[in-house]
Design a protein around this nucleic acid. Structure first.
Lengths: 142, 142
DNA sequence: ATACATCCTCTAGCCGCTAGAAGTTCAAGC
DNA sequence: GCTTGAACTTCTAGCGGCTAGAGGATGTAT
């Protein structure tokens, strides 16, 4: 029987986060002591590890919910899990492409700045005038 | 004299977002008509363009606040603007490195999945057991 | 019995918007 | 001048994924 603090240490998840996962139904309600404190078993430890690892790979909590559900039904075909992972891979690749464009632009800005007064600063100049950009970097937060 | 809607179209910023920027002090309070509607001038259009462009390059609103401040003082040295841009570049590079590790892992997961039952699904298996990962991909949301 | 680390619930905040309700104003057409 | 209706106004609440803190209860070691 593990306390929430132990679970926290073992998985690298903050105590509040574990309670949050419970609140949104990602973790099941654990057993309680007489005094009302949570006690976990190993199945719950595994589940939390699964969640954390998935988060580290960038899956959203919604995606993780689906993955957990699939994981709970061993006889279902695994196409869906596959599709979720592929979707995630695609997202990661898109984000990388976007960051690459940003990096190019930022590098150029920094490179061209010769360090005088802000009036002549290339960094600020480029920010002022998008037409000076060589790359497209359109969507915000995409 | 531009309405908020015109400003919105010209900069690709949602009307609510412009009002939000005003609320947090990133955009100045504009003039108003007798009836109380906002009216903008070209200086404000430039400012909003600057903000948007900076956002597209991934700068935080706080960083943008500093950049705007620097831009407003042409005689100050531009080291600071430079430092902010360098910081941003570094962040972008860190995020890229992280995504690269994720991509590797996701690719491997997807590749190895042969499409049977979820019980044998490599995707789920890898998520269950971090030790199967080849790369480090530790920090969440970093 | 006491100390004190850990636990509990609850509320509110972070970023950067976004959406919607309910009401007002502006500008164009007749 | 009047009517229409698009665009404006303020206000509140929500998104994801936590995180922090107040104020109090519990568990365990000595």
């Amino acid at each position: 029987m593990l306390t929430i603090g132990t679970l926290s240490k073992k998985t690298g998840t903050k105590v509040q986060t574990i309670r949050y996962y419970e609140q949104i139904g990602l973790m099941p309600e654990p057993g309680r002591t007489e005094g009302g404190q949570r006690r976990y078993d190993n199945a719950q430890l595994d589940r939390l590890s699964f969640i954390r690892h998935s988060r580290q790979l960038g899956f959203s909590l919604d995606a993780i919910r689906e993955l957990l559900d699939l994981s709970d039904h061993p006889n279902r075909p695994c196409d869906e899990a596959d599709a979720i992972a592929r979707r995630q891979l695609k997202q990661v690749e898109q984000r990388m492409a976007r960051l690459k464009a940003l990096r190019t632009e930022l590098k150029r800005m920094v490179h061209e700045c010769s360090g005088g007064r802000t009036a002549d600063c290339r960094v600020l100049e480029v920010l002022r005038d998008h037409s000076e950009c060589l790359t497209e970097h359109d969507e915000i937060g995409a």
